[in-house]
Design a protein around this nucleic acid. Structure first.
Lengths: 149, 149
DNA sequence: TTTATATATTTGTCATACTAATTATTGGTA
DNA sequence: TACCAATAATTAGTATGACAAATATATAAA
């Protein structure tokens, strides 16, 4: 295998990740879900982990703080999330789903599973395990954080 | 495997793709490469395929036209690429590397192979083949274009 | 207690991605 | 010729992503 051939993993990875997001986003739009794919990820994690600070949430979804701030801004504007002042720390917030946010998650969850399944046609559970292993290995190879812990 | 577990592929894929791009971009910055990762992809393809219209180039790098227009704008501003009017079609351009662009590609190419190798530590050539197969399968599963061809 | 440092969040800037709409031009056809 | 549809590229608007810097507050150290 030449270096040339080898270096293509980054191209294929980027291309596929974009396609997956684009496909999902199109389905979200067709279904009038009223959220983006990244906004959904945030809603889903809030729904599963309850009250979270923005820092905790950012770590869960692997987005940096400025990006998360902006996503939360949009979700608040749409009325799905609220920022409740943290009782002990005035720098911080508890993020909560509103009633409307809870309904949204309940309504969308099954539809999103369906959308996600399409990508996996012609692939097996074994493929899934391999894929996870390789992705996680790459991530760890490049993650500087590990050196500091 | 629950649906819940299964649907994580999209999260892992997105997270890893971002990490790969971020790591490379950081190395590009440390090495004062003066281009972004996506700008490099465009330069590299221009170098390998010679005169191309923007539409042809967009198809090669799998970016949409507005995105490519802006990347080419930046590369022209930096003096690595030039837009030459197409002799037969006044709507279109031939894109060319400038002398400076050719030198840039020659200088960066080996450095970028080194950067790309890091991600692949602890993984085999066999893994690479599996990875390619799975990524391409996912891409094709979601690619509406195929239906029309 | 004052000072220094660390933490939580926000703001600013640039680059990329996607969609829709626009402009200019081309080619086919009545 | 005049019209119409297709094509090449650009512009506009919104969202995300990375990074640096700013702000406010909390905590630890002198």
């Amino acid at each position: 295998m030449t270096q040339e051939q080898f270096a293509k993993y980054s191209f294929l990875l980027d291309r596929t990740a974009r396609k997956v997001k684009q496909y999902a986003q199109q389905q979200f739009k067709d279904g009038a879900f009223d959220v983006t794919v990244d906004q959904w990820l945030v809603l889903k994690n809030l729904s599963e982990h309850g009250k979270l600070s923005q820092t905790e949430l950012a770590n869960l979804v692997f987005k940096d703080h400025p990006t998360l701030t902006r996503i939360v801004d949009l979700l608040c504007k749409k009325g799905y999330v609220e920022r409740v002042p943290h009782p002990q720390d005035r720098r911080s917030f508890h993020l909560n789903l509103t009633e409307s946010g809870v309904s949204k998650v309940t309504a969308l969850r099954p539809k999103i599973f369906e959308i996600r399944e399409k990508a996996w046609e012609n692939l097996s559970e074994q493929d899934f395990e391999e894929f996870k292993r390789i992705l996680n290995t790459i991530y760890q190879n490049l993650d500087g954080q590990l050196l500091e812990e």
